[in-house]
Amino acid sequence: MEDRSQTPILVIDDEMDIRELIADVLEQAGYPCVAVADGKSARSEMENTAFSLLIIDLRLKGEDGLELARRIRANSTVPILMLTGKGTESDRIISLELAADDFLMKPFNIRELIARVNALLRRSSMLNQHHQSHVTEQYECLKFGDWVLNLTTRQLESSSGESVALTFGEFTLLEVLAKHPKRVMSREQLLTGLRGVESEVFDRTVDVLISRLRNKLEINPRSPRYIRTERGVGYSFSEPVSHLM
């Protein structure tokens, strides 16, 4: 089968059977793949190769997978899919809060793995194409309150010009909300905007991303100005939004 992308996926898992299974499944689906057992090997690979997606086991031996993801996220917006075992809900919440764009619990269904990989890479590809199509044009931006969300460069800037780092999932969710101001959106609608495919999802994914966005957008996250909770329904973007070119 032909590769769907020239840019490989990096798999980091210290369980050889799982690591080899994921690599085989991805390659059979047409995705080039590099698989390593630990963070040191992952960092070495990333020094020489650009990857389209990282799949990281939460509980790596020697170096915690979450810490590895956090370090990577500090310098990169590459999509991260976190693999979690039969741990507590808090493990999954923390992984989403700090670094990951999505998670998948072990043991996983192969079809669900491919569905999540497809969704993350499809969104990433669409965003890259959107950016490339605007290289010689004016930037497309959404302005609200004290912020400007640049849809072309995928950056959030304050009115003072300070850039605020957003993860892949944070940016995508903020874009969905800001494009529908004053409209109440359910968690299901927001998850559809985030993933673009129907699949079993973690119930608190949207809540965790909203919390992360509030911590970055709001002066007082407990009394939000921009993203309001509509109890029993979902969320709404309460500020007027102007479209800039």
Rank of each mutant, 00 (worst) to 15 (best):
M1T: 11
E2I: 00
D3I: 01
R4D: 02
L10T: 07
I12L: 05
I12M: 11
D13M: 04
D13R: 04
D14R: 07
E15V: 14
M16G: 02
I18R: 07
R19H: 03
R19L: 13
L21K: 10
A23P: 05
D24W: 04
D24K: 10
D24F: 09
V25Y: 03
V25S: 07
V25A: 09
A29H: 06
G30H: 08
G30N: 13
Y31K: 09
P32F: 02
V34L: 12
G39M: 08
G39F: 06
S41D: 13
A42I: 06
A42D: 09
A42H: 12
A42F: 09
S44Q: 13
E45I: 11
E47P: 00
A50F: 08
F51P: 01
L53H: 06
L54M: 08
I56N: 06
L58W: 14
R59G: 02
K61A: 14
K61Q: 12
E63K: 14
D64T: 11
D64C: 15
D64K: 11
G65F: 05
G65D: 01
L68Q: 09
R73G: 01
A74G: 07
T77V: 12
L81P: 05
L83W: 05
L83K: 05
K86H: 12
G87H: 04
T88Y: 08
T88H: 09
T88E: 14
E89K: 05
I94W: 04
S95E: 00
S95C: 15
D101L: 04
D101R: 06
F103G: 03
L104K: 06
K106I: 04
K106Q: 13
P107S: 12
F108V: 10
R111A: 12
R111K: 14
R116Q: 08
V117N: 03
L121E: 05
L121N: 12
R122D: 14
R122W: 08
S124P: 00
Q132M: 15
H134A: 09
H134S: 03
C141Y: 01
L142I: 08
K143G: 04
G145Q: 10
G145A: 13
D146P: 00
D146M: 06
W147V: 05
V148N: 08
R154W: 07
R154H: 13
Q155R: 15
L156D: 03
S159Q: 13
G161D: 06
G161I: 08
S163I: 15
S163E: 11
V164H: 08
V164L: 15
L166N: 01
L166V: 05
F168V: 01
F171K: 05
V176M: 10
V176F: 12
H180F: 00
P181D: 09
K182R: 15
K182P: 01
R183P: 00
S186N: 07
R187K: 15
E188S: 12
Q189W: 00
L190R: 10
G193L: 02
G196P: 06
V197T: 14
V197D: 02
D203A: 09
R204L: 10
T205C: 04
V208Q: 09
R212W: 01
R212F: 00
N215Q: 06
K216D: 07
L217F: 03
E218Y: 09
R222V: 03
V233F: 11
V233G: 00
G234N: 05
L244W: 08
M245Q: 12
M245L: 11
